[in-house]
Design a protein around this nucleic acid. Structure first.
Length: 758
DNA sequence: CCGTCAACAGTTTTT
DNA sequence: CTGTTGACGG
């Protein structure tokens, strides 16, 4: 990590940004140029040198984790907590504003936040209700269109007015109904957390003036990734007008803009000087993170982009190790090589630890092969992303209960848990309940409470429904009195969630552990000191449970990343933004995967992919590995892999090439025929330089393990042994093995279920 | 109403 | 290949 910041250690550009007092300022901060230090030091400077009250400061970051770090660093610099300062993500800040003023828009402060998954379900339900067939248009596409509209601050009626083709007309219809449904449920989706605060500012009398006066200094990190809604939010809050405002500092790097697909508008940063007249611009181009060779590669790659402000990172660091480019046979081979390389490094240098390594990839699907290789190699790892903790079934179930307790109008939560655990309320009963509820203008939960008034529900189901409603009501009452952890703990006990899961077998035990982890998280939430500005939220008539849920809804997987864990980190490059590691592997560098195939038709998208690669490269401090495979399985299909064109601009002098052992063997045998070049390269390389090993042709088998003569293996029945002979092709490879206990046997590899012994 | 099995579609990145 | 959805029988 970086050294503790102090004015003395700032370079001239950093210092000029830190000492900037009033008026707008854009800090173009290259990767590793100390932008967090600039932000935190400036905050400290504002408080200490200019006497600004911390409660007059609003700082917006990209992740909760970054917010936490920023607060901690400001606290260190000041020697005390910056009480009253707001630090959070746009979404968290939006949620906080809404919690305080939800009534102005017709919501209550106990509103539910629908995550992406829930929003999609809601879209689908809405489509079904409107008889817009989910088969004709994918709910994903419909919700995507709604989300895109929201991010550009397009309201349903405006959208409808411009809709022309069948798809947009359908979306317009769904959009309006979806929004109505959310309101009825007292819910916001992620996008609303950005949009509704803008609505608040533009419609609620006096609010904007209040906040403009309150937040005299606004600071924004990762400005290049803001979208229209976020821009508008900032513009309302912090553009220079009459009496106040205009003290906006945005920090960002156009070369690291990687969220265009989510509506981020790179023009926000490119046009800052125009949008905020009189803005100062400071460039931070001195890099304090990476070796010179890594920076050379980064600069070479990003200079291929045309749409950029243009900036070149400098360093006074030493050249460092060359980069390593690795060619593997397939994704499994690639993963294995990476795992072994990490082991080699760890063995060679005892002061390195697993936490110094990160493996990055373009798509989450790539994590599987890596995960398996790490398991086999017995290397500890932590995966960030993919299936998130809060997206696991059992966690979602528990949370849905809590949501319903906190917000009885949450129909989505009701739908999710009405039959968990099984209460004998099936599709038919639910449909009737919803129909009846809608007809009488009741919520689903309200209708359940009075199920005995509906003759359709006789005996069992009426009782089950009423009992369920009573349970929720009881806990709603409880939640107003006790801490969040208490509520969850008692709820889980009452519905017998843990024991039900335990009975499901080994997987259920894991699920039960997850629920225990959730309970622990709630207790932790209760125990932590109230963070300053939260006092107001408590006053805003919310329960501990309300606040816990709203916080949990905004947690991301990166927030769960534990940098101190003694494990290698595996994650997408998107997730790695803002992080740094001594050793970085970027895997899957093949055209069609990275960059993704679709990027080839769209110059802007290709540039964004390249920026993503640039972000990946610049995470590395000491050593960078770039790997690709000749063959990769995707969706069960085997496809040839051509090295990414992104690798081309990297100067040959700073990068060394390697091949995995498996590839070398397969090549030496001439068994690989994906490209015409294989034979030529083989000739150039010279035959027989590789140790004489028996090759295995696995080009037509899905996952045949790669073995060579002399290798130690373990058989499930015969135990450990050494491979003496190999014969056969593809799926029919047979091996003669000398087992320590069972003697010499001939086995078919496909059936033998051998394991490699290290 | 619920469990089982077959057919099926899907892979880009996330607050 | 894998997780999810739909049809069917108990």
């Amino acid at each position: 990590m970086e050294q503790a910041a102090s004015h003395v250690q700032l370079n001239p550009e950093q210092r000029s940004a830190v000492q900037h007092f009033e008026g707008p300022i854009l800090v173009l901060a290259g990767a590793g140029s100390g932008k967090t230090r600039v932000l935190t030091t400036r905050i400290a400077h504002l408080v200490r040198e200019h006497g600004v009250d911390p409660s007059g400061i609003l700082a917006v970051t990209f992740t909760n984790k970054a917010a936490g770090e920023m607060r901690a660093r400001v606290r260190t610099l000041l020697g005390e907590d910056p009480a009253g300062m707001w630090i959070g993500t746009f979404h968290a800040v939006g949620a906080r504003l809404l919690r305080r003023h939800a009534d102005r828009l017709g919501w209550t402060s106990s509103f539910t936040i629908f995550d992406a998954d829930e929003a999609l379900r809601e879209t689908k339900r809405t489509m079904e209700r409107l008889q817009v067939s989910p088969k004709r248009w994918h709910p994903k596409a419909v919700h995507g269109a709604i989300s895109a509209a929201k991010n550009q601050l397009v309201a349903p009626d405006t959208y409808a007015a411009t809709a022309a083709d069948p798809f947009t007309l359908a979306v317009a219809q769904v959009f309006a109904a979806y929004q109505t449904s959310l309101k009825e449920q007292n819910a916001f989706d992620f996008d609303d957390l950005l949009v509704k605060p803008v609505d608040l500012f533009t419609t609620a009398q006096g609010l904007l003036a209040y906040y403009r006066q309150r937040f005299t200094f606004v600071l924004v990190d990762e400005y290049q990734d803001t979208n229209r809604a976020q821009y508008q939010f900032l513009h309302l809050l912090a553009s220079a007008q009459e009496e106040s405002g205009g003290n906006l500092m945005v920090v960002g790097d156009d070369d690291q803009s990687i969220y265009g697909w989510r509506g981020a508008d790179i023009r926000n940063i490119l046009d800052f000087e125009r949008d905020f007249p009189g803005a100062r611009v400071v460039r931070l181009e001195q890099n304090y993170r990476s070796t010179a060779r890594i920076l050379d590669a980064a600069n070479a790659v990003i200079s291929q982009n045309l749409k950029r402000k243009g900036k070149t990172l400098r360093t006074s660091a030493e050249a460092g190790e060359p980069l390593t480019r690795v060619e593997a046979y397939d994704e499994r081979d690639e993963a294995e090589w990476i795992a072994h390389e990490i082991q080699r490094r760890l063995m060679r240098a005892p002061d390195e630890t697993a936490r110094d390594f990160v493996v990055l990839y373009r798509t989450n699907a790539q994590s599987r092969a890596l995960e398996e290789a790490f398991r086999r190699a017995d290397l500890p790892y932590q995966i960030v992303g993919g299936t998130r903790f809060y997206e696991r079934r059992e966690i979602m179930d528990a949370l849905a209960y809590l949501r319903l307790i906190s917000n009885p109008r949450d129909a989505a939560a009701f739908e999710r848990v009405i039959n968990v655990p099984r209460r004998g309320i099936g599709d038919a009963s639910r449909a009737e309940l919803y129909r009846w509820a809608a007809a009488r203008g009741m919520s689903a939960l309200g209708a359940a409470a009075r199920a005995d008034e509906n003759p359709t529900f006789r005996g069992r189901s009426a009782a089950a429904l009423a009992e369920f409603a009573a349970l929720v009501a009881r806990f709603t009452e409880l939640a107003s009195q006790v801490a969040a952890g208490q509520v969850i703990e008692r709820l889980v006990e009452e519905i017998g969630l843990l024991s039900a899961l335990e009975e499901e077998g080994p997987e259920g035990t894991e699920r039960a552990d997850n629920v225990r982890e959730l309970i622990a998280a709630a207790h932790e939430f209760d125990a932590r000191p109230l963070d300053d500005a939260e006092d107001d939220d408590v006053a805003a008539d919310t329960t501990a449970l309300d606040r816990f849920l709203q916080k949990v809804s905004l947690l991301t997987d990166v927030d769960r990343h534990d940098p101190d864990a003694r494990a290698v980190t595996l994650m997408t490059i998107h997730n790695a933004k803002g992080l740094e590691f001594p050793y970085v592997f970027i895997s899957g560098l093949e055209d069609g995967l990275f960059p993704l195939a679709r990027a080839f038709d769209e110059p802007d998208t290709l540039e964004e992919e390249r920026r993503l690669f640039y972000v990946g490269i610049t995470r590395a401090r000491r050593k960078l590995y770039l790997s690709h495979a000749r063959v990769r399985r995707r969706a069960g299909e085997v496809r040839p892999g051509i090295p990414s064109s992104f690798l081309e601009p990297i100067p040959p002098l700073i990068i060394e090439h390697q091949r995995t052992r498996a590839l070398s063997h397969a090549r030496a045998s001439g068994s690989l025929g994906w490209h015409g070049s294989a034979r030529r390269e083989e000739r150039d390389q010279g035959r027989g330089r590789e140790p004489a090993g028996v090759w295995v042709d696995y080009s037509d088998s899905q996952d045949a393990p790669r073995y060579v003569k002399g290798e130690r293996v373990r058989h499930p029945q015969f135990g450990p042994g050494v491979i003496r002979e190999l014969s056969g092709f593809g799926k029919d490879v047979k091996a003669v093995i000398d087992f320590e206990r069972a003697g010499r046997k001939k086995v078919v590899l496909r059936y033998a279920n051998l394991q490699k012994e290290l």
